[in-house]
């Protein structure tokens, strides 16, 4: 059972890097970053998963296994960071669209001149 999330993580990472390498549309590259972030989040949460575990609230804890809270805190933080990163990169793409009239990464070459 533990292997299923990890297989999903591997597939998601593969999809994300494939998009980053193949697609030149920057919006799609941002989507790939989102998929990569989701893969890492899934990986973190699945590390803390315990079969049949309950939420780790000590006050009312029954005498059963609990899932690990630390990785969930990490995931939450990473989601917030991911929102900030995505918003910033999308804002950059809006400026690029206004100034260059394209969102194709290959046509974005004024810097090299």
């Amino acid at each position: 059972m533990m292997a299923i999330p990890l297989i999903a993580v591997a597939i998601l990472i593969g999809i994300a890097f494939a998009i980053l390498l193949i697609k030149r549309n920057m919006i799609k590259m941002v989507m790939a970053l989102g998929i990569l972030e989701g893969a890492v989040n899934l990986f973190l949460v699945s590390l803390g998963y315990r079969e049949g575990g309950v939420a780790p609230i000590f006050v009312s804890a029954p005498d059963t296994a609990m899932v690990l809270p630390t990785v969930q805190a990490l995931t939450l933080t990473n989601i917030v960071i991911g929102v900030a990163t995505t918003a910033m990169i999308l804002a950059f793409i809006m400026v690029i669209w206004k100034k260059y009239g394209t969102v194709n990464a290959d046509k974005m070459r004024r810097l090299k001149k």
């Binding site: 910033m88 990169i89 004024r110 810097l111």
Partner: peptide, 20 residues
């Protein structure tokens, strides 16, 4: 005229992948 954003977007994407 956009070139600073062009530099920033590359920097941001590379660093996001690195961070993950």
């Amino acid at each position: 005229g956009g070139i600073a954003v062009e530099g920033a977007i590359k920097y941001a994407v590379v660093n996001t992948i690195g961070g993950l």
